[in-house]
Each structure stands twice: as C-alpha cells, then as structure tokens.
Design a binder for these strands. Structure first.
Lengths: 138, 138, 138, 138
DNA sequence: TTTT
DNA sequence: TTTT
C-alpha cells in the first residue's frame, strides 16, 4: 500500500531502450548508489550498490533521451520484484525499482572540455526536472 | 547519499534472531507488500512482493520481541545489496532492506479469540512505535 | 526541487469543497497529526498538530466524496506557502500541504452501530486507495 | 505517527545559534525551496517558499559550524507546529520543520575565488554528510 | 475552529 | 520458503 523509494545515484552506463508489444517505451539502466559508513576501526568506508531501474511511457522517453552514463540523478519510485523459475525449476526473484519521478542533478565534465574540471571531476548543473509537462513538485 | 525506503506490509513468518560476533542482535524477516494495479482489461489485479528485511541492535531486539507473523507494519529504512560469488565463480547479488524505524499497524485476529473478528479478519490496534525510548516522530 | 511530505493523521472535520473559476474542484480539510515524545521526566507525552490540506481535480473529487471527519489517512504531498499582506501592510505567510496521493486507513466506529466497537474505538478497514483509476503504488 | 518531510533548498542566510536552558544547542535557519510549474498560458513559472528549519543537539552543532548562506542542502525532517496566543487573545500557529538529517549538496562560488565560476554560478561539491559519526544512510 |  |  505504501511502497516508496528515494535514491540519489549515478548511471553506470547509458540507458537501454526497448518497446512493449503495445508500443510503450521501456527505459532501463543501472544506478550506482554510494553508502558511507564507519568500520570497526572508526575509519570511513564507502560501499556501492547497483540497482536496476525501469521506467515506462513518457518518463521512459525523456530518460532515454536526456540521461547518459555518469549522470547523477534523484529518483523517486517504488520497489518491484521479478519472479521466475530457473532451468532447474527453482524459484528465483530479483528486486528492481520502477522510476516515477526523476531529476537530473549533475553531469560529469567532458574530458576535452575547455572548462576547468570542477571539484571531484563533476560539473554542477542546476537540477533539471525530467518529469515533463506536468506540474511535478520534484 | 539519499537512500530511503518506506513500506507498509505484513510479516510472512515470525522474525528470526541471530547475533553478530560482537554480540549485536540481528533480526530478519520477510515482508509481504501488496500492489494493486489495473490489467489491460481494466480489472484490478493484486501482486505481492516479498522483501528481505534486516535490523540491528536495539531496534532488532524490539522487533524480535514484539513482531510476529501476520503483523502489518510501516517500515522506514534503506536499500542494501549483498554481493557474493557462487561455486561457479559467478557474481551474484541480492537486494535487501535495513530497517531504521518501524511502527506496528495491526495484528491479525486470533482465531480462537472471544473477540468478534473485525472487518476483513483483522483486529485494529493503535499504531505502536517500536523505535524505543527515543523521541522518534514515526 | 525535492519537496515531499508523508503524513498519517485524522480529519478534524468533513472536507470542504469549492471550485476554481476554471471549474476545477478544490477539496480542503484539516489533518490532526499526533506526535509522541518523552518529556524531561521521562514520561510519554502526546502533542497534536493541525495541518491544512488542499487537493485539486480528480483527487479532490474522490476525497470530497469518500473522506469524512475522523477518518485516518496516509497522505503524500508537498509543502506550499500562501503569502499575503495584512491590512497593516505586513507580510504574512502560512504553510499548507497539497495532497498528491491519499489512502484511507481507518474510520471511527459509528456510535449507534450494531457492530461491536473494536479496539480503541476504531474499526479497521483495509487500506483504500483513493487515487483512482490509475496504477498508483500507494 | 508518520510525519516525514524531504526538501532540497538553499539557506537564505547564515544559521542562527542559541542554547536551551539545558545547554542544548538549537540552530535555526530559513530554507528557500523552489517550485516550477506551468501557468495557464503553458509557460514555466517559478515560485519560492521559505520554510523555518530548526535543529537540536549534535546535528545543530554541525549545521551551525558547517552551513552558511547560499548552501544547497538536502534535508529530512518532520513537521511541527508552534502555537501561541497573540495580545488580542487569538490563537495563532506556525508550521516549522525539525531537521533530522542533512546533506550539503553545493555551495555558491566565492566571488573572489581564483576558481573559474562553474555553471550557473555554483560550485559543485560532493554531497557531504552532516549527520556525524554515526552510520547514516543519507 | 479541531481528530482518535 | 511466504502475509492479509
């Protein structure tokens, strides 16, 4: 009934586009999300998770057109679970995330750019709303 | 950096308790989360996802003590990902959810209860905060 | 850019309905949201906030039709701020919340009902999605 | 029971610091949150809300030390409501937001910096966790 | 002006 | 392996 996910992360590669039999566009990509934590020794560690993201319809069209590898995004969506049986007849499942709203937070600097590379190899862009024509508050 | 999950669902079985070498309690359970959607024919369908939940420390102690199979909870947490290699040396991963705040929303009625079973086989309980002594707003 | 609010609370009165010049329906109500906290003496206290909720269009129609005083709801929305000047020319503002998704969690028992009042004076209802025909995950 | 707010915005001035009789630090500031929407003519408009933010204890200390005017932050917190009576004996109330987790997203470029001002007059900084020593996932 |  |  309540199933909500909010993530900030970076695309590990360009989005992939495919189409449902109905003609609806599906755009998928993998999102790298970092977590920082202190280990037992009190030192900061960083861990990265890679989540499978899926989007449909108009949002999928905009994401396929406007996102690319390395972009940092803010994503709101919900958890889903694919279920299947493997060749051995064993039940398998995989969690994925369906995107519902996405904002582009930043793009990595072009290496050949005449712009001075900014801090941490990233160029700041004003957050861009990728949720289209509608009035979306995020 | 932002990694937040909010879910309402029901425990599919009693929580399992184990302990880390440090003595810290770990409580795990599976949460059934329902999704209702319209199929192509316009009829409402229901799909259920089963997510693996993990909790640590004081929250784990309270959840192990106070939750049981069938309880409906509101959970706030974050996504994690376990990674390993199988015997064939292939990389495998599994998404799980670490609970950070939990509220008990309702318990199923005891079948042998002298209480009249309420609507839909569920007894209403006032939402119970399982986040302990601290002042937690959820 | 990100502006998200999630609340569980109860309507303090029946919703009020009005219409914009465009004909669009606007439904407003006040939501009582409780907070429990420990005072300095270590005793649990409860405090109640009353937030002004506003909804528009199709959601407003459903909320005006299906919600009433005392209903407990789960609400997702975003913060807004009304600004005006008073007679003395001083700037004034008031925070309100625009509802984007609403689920009905429970209704208070009718006092004259032939139903046995359930625990805590509340009848449990299966959470009801008030977000209409679309496939909304909450 | 559930009372959660997530915002991205910029500080309109440096934070203010005060102390409770108990010695606990309180840090307050105003956060400017932008909303983009299409007007009736189909043109994008931008509106800005100013929310009052309050923080306590260790988080207040870090925010007082590390935040300043113009910083863009991601904030997680909950809604509160101050209530009082004015001189005329009328009930008044004001919504505010208590910060629970904060991440620094970006700082405006120093005007006298020898750094080339980056895109849109802002310097990108890697998101900084201001939630201290604990392992906070945001 | 407030709900349970 | 699944809850209501």
């Amino acid at each position: 009934m309540l199933n909500k996910v909010l993530l900030i992360g970076r695309l590990t590669r360009d989005p992939e586009v495919r189409y449902l039999p109905s003609g609806m566009q599906v755009t998928t990509f993998s999102l790298a999300v970092n977590r920082r934590f202190k280990d037992k020794g009190g030192n900061w560690q960083e861990e990265t998770y890679f989540f499978d993201i899926e989007s449909f319809g108009g949002l999928a069209e905009r994401l396929g057109r406007q996102l690319s590898k390395g972009n940092q995004i803010l994503l709101e969506g919900s958890l889903r679970q694919d279920k299947w049986e493997n060749q051995a007849g064993e039940k398998r499942s995989r969690v994925k995330i369906v995107a519902e709203r996405v904002a582009l937070l930043s793009k990595p600097t072009q290496p050949d750019s005449n712009q001075k590379p900014s801090y941490e190899g990233s160029e700041f862009v004003e957050p861009t709303d990728l949720n289209s024509d509608e009035d979306v508050p995020f």
